[in-house]
Design a protein around this nucleic acid. Structure first.
Lengths: 239, 239
DNA sequence: GCTGCGCAATAACCTGAGTTAATTCGCCAC
DNA sequence: GTGGCGAATTAACTCAGGTTATTGCGCAGC
């Protein structure tokens, strides 16, 4: 299996053999985390970043009263806290949604890349810029879309991201997220998430039984969600 | 007057004379934009980025029905669309809130920096990471805070950012944003923004007459907004 | 001094989403 | 197959915030 980060960056621009070699050998260890386990703590200052080899993770920000907002979902190939290379301390927690296998990369290695490999540096920078672009899209869906369209939008996004890394096809994917977590991502209550899920099911915009979500008609769901995939930057280009 | 980007980055880490020199001479021109004018169009692919020398700007994302969400406010020293160096096409518009003076920097110059000046590259990367960190904080305030705390939080943030660039002191600053724009940033209706502004005034958490906002008791406002400035990364550190 | 205009302020009414609490389902352990 | 448990579902009621419409105010233009 090719290295997931190489595939991911390679989807945006061609990587040289030397660059691929560097990424191949960048991890100093592989850790496994159980579902629900905290991978990175808010307020911590680490000297490494984590790349997902297997499983789902989320970035969570806690409020004082115990409620939380999820600011991102992460899947195979995502460099969950690459920003902690320069941005310290961590402004959020990273939590394993399912069991996760993570490759740990020392910040000294990333620093060495910035010293000697400008193109690869730009590609890593790009990957954090895409995270930010997704944050902005979430701001719009959170601030301006009604709950049903908001959920539909998230499902469109996750499907395309999963498809890009080979974890989804034929408009169906495994979605290991409880309605409670979904509520934390959508800024809703659990009860209302349930109402909205059932509305989308009733309208045949999605199917969802067990952990598997299906999209009977992607164009219809896109339209309903006002979804435009540009912000995911899934196209190859010189950087 | 020192170059605002040098001061801004210099607040996060020491810049060498050579680095300062590069930033000094990086702009190829200075443009002025009128209030309300579009500085960068959504969907466009430019070969330069803009740095604010004077005035306020915002990043706006439009919906089909004409409504919009503001995803960021920008002030003196902010590199409004540095991400367009690697992320194309633009996923949002940049609009001048007041009259703006902008320094335009060619992407070829930024690229040259990434080729030859790793530390300066990291500092520029950092500045986009701070943007992302603010996006995440906004996701929390948008998703989980009630409207009054949300507005209070924004005012805390803007005060500290303005103070850091010398545009605010003594807990008072010029806030050139109409309640309609504010509604687009907070994900609220204009009417509700007005209700909330008056609530904060009534509670003596803020004063706001004309374009000037005052904060009689910053600690009380922080508490009310659950505001923690960590995410602004205003502290100096080696990068 | 009048007119027009953008913005702030108010009012009346409506609705999407929150809250609390009870019920049901699916699945695993023993 | 029974008990336990987390998650999904449902119901009843409340409320934050949206909608539509009107009014007031300061100011630029003539």
């Amino acid at each position: 299996m090719p290295h997931p980060l190489i595939s991911k960056l390679g989807r945006r621009d061609r990587l040289s053999d030397a660059e691929q070699q560097i990424l191949e050998t960048s991890a100093f260890s592989v850790h496994t985390f159980a579902a629900g386990e905290e991978i990175v703590a808010e307020g911590s200052t680490s000297d490494y970043s984590c790349l997902i080899l297997e499983g789902w993770a989320s970035r969570n920000k806690q409020l004082k009263d115990g409620r939380q907002q999820i600011t991102a979902f992460h899947i195979l190939g995502d460099f969950v806290d690459l920003h902690s290379f320069l941005l310290k301390p961590m402004d959020h927690t990273v939590v394993a949604i399912t069991a996760c296998k993570m490759a740990m990369v020392k910040h000294s290695v990333v620093k060495e890349i910035t010293e000697n490999h400008p193109h690869l540096t730009r590609m890593l920078w790009l990957s954090t810029l895409i995270d930010a672009s997704i944050h902005r899209e979430w701001l719009v869906t959170l601030g301006r879309l009604p709950a049903p369209a908001h959920l539909a939008h998230l499902i469109c996004e996750l499907y395309l991201r999963l498809e890009a890394v080979g974890e989804a096809k034929d408009y169906s994917f495994v979605f290991p997220v409880t309605q409670t977590l979904l509520a934390d991502a959508l800024g809703l209550s659990t009860v209302h998430v349930n109402r909205v899920v059932q509305e989308l099911r009733r309208e045949k915009l999605i199917s969802w039984r067990g952990a598997r979500v299906g999209i009977p008609n992607f164009d219809r769901l896109k339209l309903f969600a006002e979804f435009d995939p540009t912000y995911l930057n899934l196209l190859v280009e010189q950087r």
